[in-house]
Every structure is written in structure tokens, then in C-alpha cells.
Design a protein around this nucleic acid. Sequence first.
DNA 1: GGTGTTATTGATCATGCGATCAATATATCG
DNA 2: CGATATATTGATCGCATGATCAATAACACC
Lengths: 214, 214
Amino acid sequence: MSSDERMPRTRRARKAPAERAAEITAAAHALALEDGLAAVTLRAVATRAGVTPALVAHYRPAMDALVADTFAAIVSAEVDEVAALVASRPTPTARLGTLVATLLDGERDDVTLVWVEAWALGRRNETLAARVREQMDAWQAVIREIVDDGVAEGAFDTDDAASVAWQVLGMIDGLNAQALVRWGDAGDRGSLIMSALEGMLALPRGALATPAVE
Amino acid sequence: MSSDERMPRTRRARKAPAERAAEITAAAHALALEDGLAAVTLRAVATRAGVTPALVAHYRPAMDALVADTFAAIVSAEVDEVAALVASRPTPTARLGTLVATLLDGERDDVTLVWVEAWALGRRNETLAARVREQMDAWQAVIREIVDDGVAEGAFDTDDAASVAWQVLGMIDGLNAQALVRWGDAGDRGSLIMSALEGMLALPRGALATPAVE
DNA sequence: GGTGTTATTGATCATGCGATCAATATATCG
DNA sequence: CGATATATTGATCGCATGATCAATAACACC
């Protein structure tokens, strides 16, 4: 069939630079969530945005940076979203339980894929690597604040909240990455980890049992 | 300088097929450990083996398969090595502690890189993806056997050894992947996780304290 | 309404990838 | 010693990547 509507047969309408730039950013964003960061390619973004590769290059002269920015946008949106959800819970214990349960509920596999690819691509894209470290710091800060609060209130017991936060983050990332490959028999990620956290924070068994999120 | 000794200026000595094949396999192996699976490319392997790309293609007609085999060889060697080390320990508790401590001692970052890249590349290389699942199963089996033994002896308490094994594996992978990016302030990965395991297995605090490995 | 700015394009370059194939040289076997 | 099998090569194809640049056309402004 000749339904070739890929490239603009007629020259695309001229748009305000800010608008076009936003469209290109959005195309990269969507592409990364659907097919991963490795799919964020000059030509793929152009096709997705209904535009010539040269135009993408005009707005984003370096693809490395576009990939890095796309990663940062996706992940920081997730951080903000989860941080907001968590903030609505009353106690550090509830906040920690909600954070873990939310991140392990299996509804963010697209973001997990972005993370895993970022770890790999970061070795050949220094701009991206820097963004990865930034976002890891952001996540760790969110978790650490919860742990600090819990320690202050006497709910948690640890003398190294920073390390606990790193450890929690690493555990979550690992379990999600694993689920990415093992979809099918994923089992219940998220219930056992509560016991693990209880061990790390000297909590009684069951203290972190998955809370009903409203 | 004209020290171009890349390509064989004189035709390479003709070798027994098995030997040449082994050299190519070894080149791919070394390349993956040094620069990651993504560096295992037809031309890179050829250069490393001191041979023409065409010869590599002659022995390994599909690069997908060479990459997948390289992954499997590296990881299964690690599984065997660690399994042997662990088997030398007397009790399930000591075995689990040794396993975790060994895998988190930071001396296998090259293998971790291979893992992370395999997760990412597996999405575009089905042969590799299958091998990844195989090796994950192998790791899970090793851990699960330890947990089963511990439960049988009454040392561990869990009603789902399989899930615990998956969880332990995921946690280890996540912490190692994290360390890959955050080298510098890695801190002591490996001590906190013992507390986490104690929580998962209903062990008293400190029961898994890092054992002196001989 | 003419003019200038610039958004947009098509063409093209250099690079790297996996793969194929006819030609060549070497080892082995009769 | 001659013949056969095959290890090895150089050349080349097709494809995808990021990047550059002169030419074109739409808009804004005077």
C-alpha cells in the first residue's frame, strides 16, 4: 500500500521556535518511554515529530545532550510524582512503605528500562552519566529524608541513614531491573522487601506491611 | 609514528580451526570484560584477535550469538566460581554470608558491567535475552539451595525460599549496578545488606555478620 | 508591499556496523 | 610430488548512525 505519510510531502508549517523545540522534546520523551533510550536517535525523533532530521539537529545540535535531557526529564518527573505521593502520608513508617510499594508495583517498567539503558549508555555518553548521578542523588535524598525523620521520631534505628537510603535505592532498582527481564513469573515483588527493610531499620516484623494507599 | 601493527601485514599463520575459534572466543571474552558487551563487535574482536573481520565472521556467522555466548561464558564462570567457594563453608548461614559478601566485595565490577549491558542489549538481541534468563535461573538456584538448606536445618525461617532467592539476587544486582555508576563514594556495600537478609529470614541481629573468608 | 530574519529542508559526508564472496595460500593427504 | 580441502584475506555491499551546509520559503516588521 502507498500510505507513505512519513516525511512531510509539503513543507511543514513554520512554528514558533519554542513550540517546535517542545515538540521535539516530547517526541524524544515518548520514544524513550516506548522503546528505550537507545531508540532516541536523530532520525527516529525526527520521524516521530513529523520533521526532518536536519531540523532536530538544528534545535538539538548534539544528540548526546538530547538523550541525557530526555533521561533527566523522565526520571525527575517520576521522582517528583512519587515524592509528592509519599509526602501525603502521615508517618515515616507509612511514607517508607508507600514509597517502596509504589516503586515496586510494576507500573513503571518503562521508566525502569530507561534507567537500565542509562546505566549502560552512560559509559559512552558522559553527559548522560552525569545526569544519571544527579538523579540517583535526587532519589537518595528523598529516601534519606524519610529515614532521617523516622530516626528522629524514634521509629527507625540506624546510625547511617545515608547508607540505608543508598541501600534501599539499590535494592529497588535491582528488583525492578530483574522484573524487566523476568516478566511472566515476577511473583510479588514488594512484600518480601518490607521484611528486608525491617531488618535494616530494626523494626518489628510486619511494621512495614504494605499500606493501603488510600 | 608509523607503528601501525593493527592488521596482519603478512598473512596470518594458518591454525587449526579449534585453536583459532578459541582465540576468537577469548578475544570476545576479554573485550567484554574490559569495555563491556557493547564493545564486542565484529571488527573489534577481529582486531583484538589479530585477524580479519571476515575470519571472525567465518567462525561466528552471527554476531548476536557471539555476544550471547560471551555473556554466558563470563557469567557462568562467575556462578561456578562463587558456588564452589560457598560450598566450602559449613553452615547455610555461613554460606549465605559468604555468597553475599563475595558478590558485593567490589572486585567484580567488570562482570557487573556485563550484566547491566546484557539487560539493555537483551531487548534487541533475543538470543542474548534467553541466555540472560538462563543465567539468572542459575544464580537463583544457587541461592535457593542455600536458603532451602537453612530452612531445613531450622536456621532460616521463610515459607517461600524461591522468592527469597530472587529477592536476594535482585538486591545484589541492584547494589552492584549502583556501585558501577557511583564508584567514589560507594561506601561499604555489603554490611547493611546482612541486616536486610536477617529481616527476610527472621534471623537475630548480627547473625550474618560478615564472615572472615578464611 | 517590500524586506529581512530564520525556520525548514534536501543533499551529502564520514563513520561504524554486520554480512557476503570470490580469490589466495597453506596444510594435509594420497 | 601433486591434488584436494579449507583457513584466511581484501573488497565490497547495505544499512544506520550523527553531523554539516547551502538553498528555500514563511513569517514579522517597517
